[in-house]
């Protein structure tokens, strides 16, 4: 029983984080059909902002808010620097410009801050522990689960109930037609990047909270998680991304628990192999995205 609770808590907290990471990536991909390689750097930006404001003496929540705002700005900047100039040219072009932009940001951090890890301030509650059904787990895990649930609920509300959300879903299906109804294209795109930045910023702080330091390459693992979760879930489906995140967390946690000690360091290789097998059976992913045509 204890083991089950431990497992469930681990999967839910990791899954929540993974789901948020994946969602931040899919929201841009769904509308623009373009992969944002600089997505991991949004987390890096949040982390370094925390480092840079750590001496200011402000309460942690305020610093965190500043960090998230910076991530949002960085998201919108990615659009202007890496996407807008080449969006019309080709899909490959955008992949490469966002990859180039990602390298640029990482090297900028390397150059202007430091290649060595920098400490990020964390609130005390992150290190506290709590007991559930006989299992001791960091409070941070519970916070992650709650944050994920809240954000996912807010996101679902945005997408289903607000005009902006409906417009974004429409733009994901048929961008030109949405414009022909008066939906301003640029606003939709900027909103997508801003939401992407918001999600990255928040999940980034939770993610960095596990280690407590930030390095230029910190965005790589979340980027990879977002990629794989998205591919599992079905490239353009928002629900799929969330589902993919939980599936990936389930696989990762399961492997963590079941691999023998000497194979544990190869966990990522095993995860990837399992993912490939899923893709062998279902190359389009678990969920179909928005339809791209009409009936007749």
């Amino acid at each position: 029983m204890r083991f089950t609770i431990q497992f469930v808590v681990d999967v839910l907290s990791l899954g929540g984080a993974y789901a948020l990471m994946a969602l931040g990536l899919v929201i841009v991909f769904g509308i623009l059909r373009l992969v944002n390689f600089a997505y991991g750097e949004l987390i890096m930006v949040a982390g370094y902002t925390m480092f840079l404001v750590s001496g200011s003496g402000l309460p942690w929540l305020v610093m965190a808010a500043v960090a998230v705002v910076m991530a949002i700005f960085a998201g919108i900047a990615t659009d202007y620097v890496a996407f807008r100039p080449v969006r019309a040219k080709s899909v490959t072009a955008v992949l490469i410009t966002s990859f180039a932009f990602s390298t640029l940001l990482q090297n900028a951090a390397l150059l202007f801050i430091s290649p060595r890890p920098r400490v990020v301030p964390l609130p005390e509650i992150f290190s506290e522990t709590v007991q559930i059904g006989g299992v001791i787990t960091p409070l941070r895990n519970i916070i992650t689960i709650i944050t994920a649930v809240v954000l996912l609920a807010l996101f679902a509300f945005l997408m289903r109930r607000t005009v902006l959300g409906i417009a974004m879903r429409a733009a994901a299906t048929n961008f030109t037609m949405a414009r022909m109804l008066g939906v301003p294209a640029n606003l939709i795109i900027s909103s997508a990047f801003a939401i992407s930045g918001l999600l990255a910023g928040i999940v980034g702080l939770l993610w960095i909270g596990r280690i407590g330091t930030v390095v230029p390459g910190i965005g790589l693992e979340p980027l990879l998680v977002a990629f794989i979760a998205t591919v599992i879930g079905g490239m353009r489906s928002l629900t799929g991304a969330v589902l993919g995140g939980f599936v990936l967390a389930f696989i990762d946690t399961g492997l963590n628990y079941s691999l023998p000690q000497e194979l544990l360091k190869f966990r990522d290789a095993f995860t990837f192999s399992l993912v490939i097998m899923i893709l062998l059976v279902r190359p389009e992913g678990l969920m179909r995205g928005p339809a791209s045509g009409q009936r007749t």
Binding site: R169, A170, T173, M177, A178, P290, A291, Q294, R295, T296
Partner: peptide
Amino acid sequence: VPEARNVFPDL
């Protein structure tokens, strides 16, 4: 109203 009846099928 363009030709091809572009409803947004999932909405």
